[in-house]
Amino acid sequence: MRNLYIFVIKNKDHFVFFLSVLLSSTLLLKNDDPRMQVIRGKSADMVTFISLPIMWVKSLWFVNYENQYLREKNLQLSLQVESMINLEVENRRLQDLLDFKRQTNLKIVPTRIVNKGIQTNLISLTVDVGKNDGVNVNQPVLTPEGVIGKTIQVGNSASIVQFITDHNYRLSVRILPSGATGILRWRGNNICEIREVQKNVNIEIGDQVVTSGFSDIYPPGLPVGDVAGVYDERGNYQKVVKVTIYSELNFIQNAFIIIEYQDAMD
């Protein structure tokens, strides 16, 4: 027994290393464990608290730029609203003609991004809303420009968001007007790639990309980006479509979480 003890003490470096790797592997394999999610939710609350001072500094830093941006956006939106009011009236009239009623209601919670993780790659965000605000796991996160991720861990007052830049993030999308669907994934530099798109569909550069609605997480029709390129892979029966993301991902300060949506067809 004593020899064993001496052996362990002599080789404590190796034992500690082995133990660390073993524990890390266990954590990696238990990512979906509910107890782990509780701990991560609590830690998100803590990180939010630590990040508050820098968030305040950042908000001051960007206030001028943001103000100018909001003025321009306000003007654009005012003009858009005008044309949309006309379109809505026309749409209602046409729906009445078709005896068809469709309503889509989104319940949205605004949120501030308090932290963008400290890993070497930007793959997650911490936002300052959580269970207390009605946020749950697997809810879409978006900016006015489009989808940027989904919630994966939720604490009481903060949540962790899997960012669109995470290479393991997937989004089922539809390309308009062709209606072709595919799976979107991140490539880098605000460019994503849609795979699993049929070869026989006609897709043009500039076509709009929106969520398909096939997923239980994302309602249909949320903006994602624009088609930036289309190419055929040799030996593959599917097209690959490059997409430019609307949002300036490096400078995002605020976002919205869709906590509830109804897509009712009568």
């Binding site: 790797v21 890390s24 954590l27 990512n31 890993q119 994966i152 962790i160 968001v161």
Partner: peptide, 26 residues
């Protein structure tokens, strides 16, 4: 070094790892 690495890695991942929680400690 190993102990420090594990603890710092754990805190790093707790600060908001989207996926692969446990990778940084390793």
């Amino acid at each position: 070094g190993t102990i420090a690495g594990f603890i710092i890695g754990l805190l790093t991942d707790l600060s908001g790892a989207g996926s692969f929680f446990g990778l940084s400690p390793m």
